[in-house]
Design a protein around this nucleic acid. Structure first.
Lengths: 195, 195
DNA sequence: AGACTTATCTACCGCTCGGTAGAAATCTCT
DNA sequence: AGAGATTTCTACCGAGCGGTAGATAAGTCT
């Protein structure tokens, strides 16, 4: 099997490099030269292995969700609503405050952009919407299970937590240190649920 | 006075158009052609009147702060901490949910970017930092005036409100409608101060 | 060995980017 | 009327953009 000349670089490692460039510079701010420099390969190799810039970004985004962003899905599986939200908020505070890659790719990858990047912007908005829905569904379950007050509006609570996370992402992008983000999580949790 | 050929366009109106383009597309996502098309002038006229792209952005940003973003400074002058935060949160919810210009220029103008826009990114981060400081100082005064509990940490509270505002901005950029942003303000206020 | 398949490289494509040169037009002054 | 100041226009600049052609190299198959 595996006909032809073998690839000389590690696809996963290269994708990882690409992810970190997109994370720091955003989709629009990243040039193909930025990518090839960081990945250590030439443009034709990149195109052969990953398609084009947009496909590469999507693959990097998948890798982000399963890697640095995995605290989110992990948090959803905690047994109680409070533990879910705790895990997500503190996980985010840690993940977003890595000084070499501050913030959140899903927020800063393409929050707004020129026409050429419009589809990426929409993809990211859709992903943020999806994660919020996942949290909403989890909190909704918590209401039926009784670990959230029975009057709680799961959708509102999910949007509130999302807002905190997104605010955290913006502050992290400005260079906020880890303990400041953690304090933000503290405050959001101090009166949870916010009735 | 006023030697030379008179200018044929209204500088303030043109700056307003430029502001709205930057607002929708961000600094990096906006091209000079986008700007000249929207402003109804040619490139040399733009350069003569506004310097270059970066200077134009700064002027548009000043206009933003004094115009659509003026709810913030107005809020700081309210008599009590609660009124200050109320005015800012609801003002933001309204300002950010204009469908033709969603979100907040100071957040989405250049949250992250390529090297060429680095100075703009830093300028925006500095401005966000400044507005947070203004709020902190106002809340600090509120503590001494007794309309916040005497143990309150004004810096933390200001960061918390900033995070809500920035989360609001991200959700607005994704198309969240006005009443959803208002609900976010409701929740943040429901237990204010978050002790 | 030789056909076949795939990766790698250099060199290049058309296009758009931000920005400007230089001449013509339109005003105020003397 | 004419000098001087300023704006406007068309046309252009070099650089960088995302993306590719085509030759060559390095493997696996029969």
């Amino acid at each position: 099997m595996t006909l032809g000349r073998p690839r000389e670089f590690d696809v996963d490692a290269a994708l990882d490099r690409a992810l970190h460039v997109f994370w720091r510079k955003g989709y629009e701010g990243t040039s193909m030269t930025d990518l090839t420099d960081a990945m250590g390969i030439t443009k034709p190799s990149l195109y052969a292995a990953f398609g084009n810039k947009e496909e590469l970004f999507r693959k990097a985004l998948d890798r982000y969700v399963d890697g640095p962003g995995s605290y989110y899905q992990a948090g959803l599986q905690k047994p109680t609503a409070r533990e879910v939200v705790e895990h997500i908020l503190y996980g985010a505070a840690d993940a977003m405050s890595d000084p070499s890659n501050p913030g959140c790719l899903a927020v800063q990858g393409a929050l707004c952009c020129g026409d050429a990047a419009e589809t990426i912007k929409q993809e990211l908005a859709a992903r943020r919407g999806k994660t919020e829905e996942d949290l909403r569904d989890r909190l909704s379950r918590a209401v039926t299970e009784g670990d959230l007050p029975s009057g709680s509006h799961a959708g509102d609570l999910a949007r509130y937590v999302s807002a905190i996370l997104q605010g955290m992402a913006v502050q992290a992008a400005s260079g906020a240190p880890r303990d400041q983000l953690r304090k933000l999580a503290d405050m959001a949790l101090r009166n949870w649920p916010p009735v």
